[in-house]
Write a protein that binds this DNA or RNA. Structure first.
Lengths: 154, 154
DNA sequence: ATACTTGCAAATGATTTGCCAGTGT
DNA sequence: ACACTGGCAAATCATTTGCAAGTAT
């Protein structure tokens, strides 16, 4: 598990491809590692390490420590990325073919994945106003979703 | 210290005004409380609880716990707000007359305060594209500042 | 006098680290 | 065989909480 600097993103098409990447990079294909990947493929959005560690149905549970270690390793390989949805635990997801960025509602805590290009105009505004090149992938956009913005008396 | 839901923001003009707010709201003017306010007035940007607790020059150090408790109380009163600049500790600042939002460079970690209106166009883009009403005050915009964007080979 | 606050220790929650036994290759 | 991993306990970091002693009003 000695990779450190992040590689370019790799969008896995299948679990098998993930295992291939592991082998190619000199990593070993172990049961916990396979399970973490399975959990990420099974998830329909970013999930916490805790969630992965708990297991679900067929998928066995495993040590939280191993989950964190493997997520970190997979992240260094460019297979996984994590987001911070609020004050709580980080959320992990597989890297995707079309880059995703995230928006979180600070009222209902819902996390929504957005195709990065949809935020290009906002990014351009920020670039021209501040000269900053922003990403909403690691730290998401936080605000009120339409639903909550409508019925919020706070 | 029983206030809980946040009051409307109050931009203090002076430490004295802060103490008045405390009295008006039924809080007590204590030494640690005065020190926390002094530290915030002395700071030229958002600072960590740790930083406040350490003291500096004239300003005595105090228990980290008290700093956190008081920051939380002042935040509930609408005098203080906090931002998350990255993976580390939260940063605290006095509420300002003209609302501020923050931008953080993920490369050099510099935190820059921005007058909220300067981001109105970006916010409008996001609103029209996603229906989201975003704020960059609690969770800041994260990206590369001009300096780092220029000389970054990563 | 009495409710609000502080200090200090201990608890929490998220994540990391040390170390030795276990196992892919 | 041997370096890479996993499990488990303990360490860290930021922050919160419990409680008895201290103090503003």
């Amino acid at each position: 598990m000695t990779v450190a600097p992040h590689r370019a993103p790799i969008a896995l098409a299948s679990l098998e491809e993930g295992l291939e990447v592991l082998r190619r990079e000199g990593g070993r294909v172990t049961t916990p590692r396979r399970i973490v990947l399975e959990a990420l493929f099974a998830a329909d959005g970013p999930v916490s390490a805790e969630h992965i560690a708990q297991g679900q149905g067929e998928r066995p549970s495993l040590e939280l420590t191993s989950v964190y270690r493997n997520l970190q390793y997979l992240e260094e390989l460019g297979i996984v990325r994590h987001v911070h949805a609020g004050h709580g635990a980080g959320l992990y997801a597989l890297e995707t073919l079309t880059p995703l960025e995230y928006v979180v509602c600070e009222h209902c805590d819902r996390v929504e994945a957005i195709d990065a290009p949809r935020l290009d105009r906002a990014r351009a505004e920020i670039r021209s106003e501040l000269g900053f090149e922003v990403r909403f992938s690691h730290f998401p956009l936080v605000g009120l979703c339409p639903r909550c913005a409508a019925g919020s008396s706070r």
